[in-house]
Design a protein around this nucleic acid. Structure first.
Length: 193
DNA sequence: AGGAAGATCTACT
DNA sequence: GTAGATCTTCCTA
């Protein structure tokens, strides 16, 4: 398996958000390997007025200092959210991973999300806060290099596959930009509701 | 020092 | 569909 390169992330976040669909996120956890296919993303762009959180935290200033292809992880509403830093040179931006389809390590994921009714798999990782919990992703992983196969968290390339990309407005954003910035694999069961 | 609000989730009706 | 839990940062005093 091969990780996505720095160049992959050094582009318009909207393009990166679309291209991250169907890629694989890999989490090394002790002796276990947890992985899932990315099925839903959201782009956050330069001068993004939509997110109060981003502006309040001066995240864009922060993102500008951070290398593309690194993870940016922070907490909202008591949930950790996972972003990949992605923007053209001298710009700022990122991509929020909103949902994945579980592949390897499903039993460990179940354990990580204990106390929850997990009768069906779709409830395991179909939301930004759910997938971080299932994959044991928290603030201690902030800044890890997603392009480095030695990292505890990385994103790998996958064989080309035919699928249809659907888009919509972003979710949970108080005042969204006019253009659709949320992308997901059409018809996939693991997309959030 | 205290309160409000946010890129959310669960459990309940 | 709505309420309450959750935790961190920002704003006001």
């Amino acid at each position: 398996m091969k990780t996505l390169t720095r160049d992959f992330y050094t582009r318009d976040p909207v393009e990166v958000a679309k291209d991250l669909l169907n890629k694989k996120i890999v989490r090394r956890l002790g002796h276990d390997v947890l992985s899932g296919k990315i099925v839903e993303t959201e782009a956050y762009v330069e001068n993004d007025i939509a997110s109060k959180t981003l502006r309040r935290r001066k995240v864009f200033g922060h993102l500008a200092d951070v290398e593309c292809g690194r993870a940016f992880i922070y907490m909202v509403h008591g949930n950790w959210l996972l972003n990949a830093i992605a923007h053209p040179r001298r710009s700022v931006g990122g991509v929020l991973i909103r949902a994945v389809e579980p592949l390897e390590g499903v039993e460990v994921m179940r354990k990580n999300r204990n106390a929850v009714n997990l009768a069906n798999l779709t409830n395991l990782t179909n939301g930004p806060g759910k997938l971080t919990k299932a994959l044991a992703i928290a603030g201690d992983l902030n800044g890890v290099d997603l392009t480095d196969r030695r990292s505890y968290l990385m994103i790998t390339d996958e064989k080309k596959q035919v699928f249809e990309i659907a888009s919509s407005h972003r979710i949970g954003v108080a005042r969204d930009l006019p253009q659709p910035l949320r992308f997901f694999i059409k018809g996939n069961k693991f997309v959030s509701k």
